[in-house]
Amino acid sequence: MAQITLAAVQSEPVWFDLDGTTDKTVALIAEAAAHGARVIAFPETWLPGYPSFMWFGDEDYRAPFRQRYLENSLVAGSAQHRRIEAAAREGRITVVLGLSERVGDELYMAQYVISDDGITTMKRRKLKPSAVEWDIFASGSGADLEVVDSSIGRIGALNCSENRRPLLRHALLSQNEQLHVASWPHFGLYPGFVPMSAEASMAASSQYAAEGGVVTLAPTIVAGAAYLELLELPEGERDRILSGGGSTRIFGPFGESIAEPLAPEVDGILYATVDESLLRRDQEYDADPTSIVKPW
């Protein structure tokens, strides 16, 4: 059976710098392609980084960050977008990109699937931004809850807490999803608050994998100490965010972890190699029911 290498990012963006993070995106795509990966998945709002500032301070504190964030969010069809498409084509690797997408003065928490021939085959937007994310991001319509074909199987993607929503999971799994990307930000915001913890979030990704019998990539962002300094947090709020926060995982179709996790502060890529049958289970099952692990 053919083997396929998968890649999930655990890395730190060049915070709120679209061109700098685009450079790093292209470098990570090339690195994964050189490693033999056929797909690479990026975290939620990787471009230009998750806007943690919205969880802190008052409007006077957040407003300058918000303007910078708007100016550094990606526009579909822009030079940065085309560079990333070209990197996918050159590396012959499918890219699942997490980004802040700008449309005029509105922002969306988006995910793009870019095929290994450099074509963006899917654009979707987070249906309902969570909590204070509403202060920056608009809601998606839900019309883009789709699974798309790729050279390694049918790919679907959800952002962060969307992976906990039964109806959203059903919407993708009912389209014969074969590879799922659960994109998350960095962890360490509000330490001790379980719903925002790495443990709860990775448990949700594991559950998704087991529920659907789909290999699931769960990429995350790393937030270094320099980023916390960049935030210039208001007095009394500095203990509400921790540095590190990486928790990238790759789960098999039983919900089992199939790659040794990186340490939370490590900036890199997590890899796993699987039988192609785990991604194309419908075809393999029809041909030989004993050739594939099926959890149902």
Rank of each mutant, 00 (worst) to 15 (best):
I152K: 03
L107S: 05
R240E: 11
E101Q: 14
D149P: 11
A203L: 13
F187C: 01
I40W: 01
E90A: 10
T290E: 14
E229P: 04
S151Q: 05
L28M: 06
W184M: 08
Q178E: 15
L28T: 02
V147W: 00
S201I: 07
G236T: 10
Q10V: 07
K123L: 12
R124S: 04
A259W: 04
S130A: 15
M1W: 05
E229F: 05
I250P: 02
V39D: 04
E101H: 10
A263M: 09
R82G: 02
S130Q: 13
S205Q: 08
W15E: 09
E265K: 15
V103C: 10
R92P: 01
V26P: 04
L107P: 04
V274D: 09
I241K: 08
A209Y: 12
S151T: 06
T22L: 02
R164H: 08
E265W: 08
A34H: 01
A86Y: 00
D267Q: 12
T290M: 11
S206V: 04
I241D: 04
G224H: 07
G142H: 07
A27W: 05
P191F: 03
R82K: 10
Q10D: 06
W134Y: 08
G49S: 14
Q3A: 10
D275N: 07
E85H: 01
P185R: 00
T94E: 02
E177A: 06
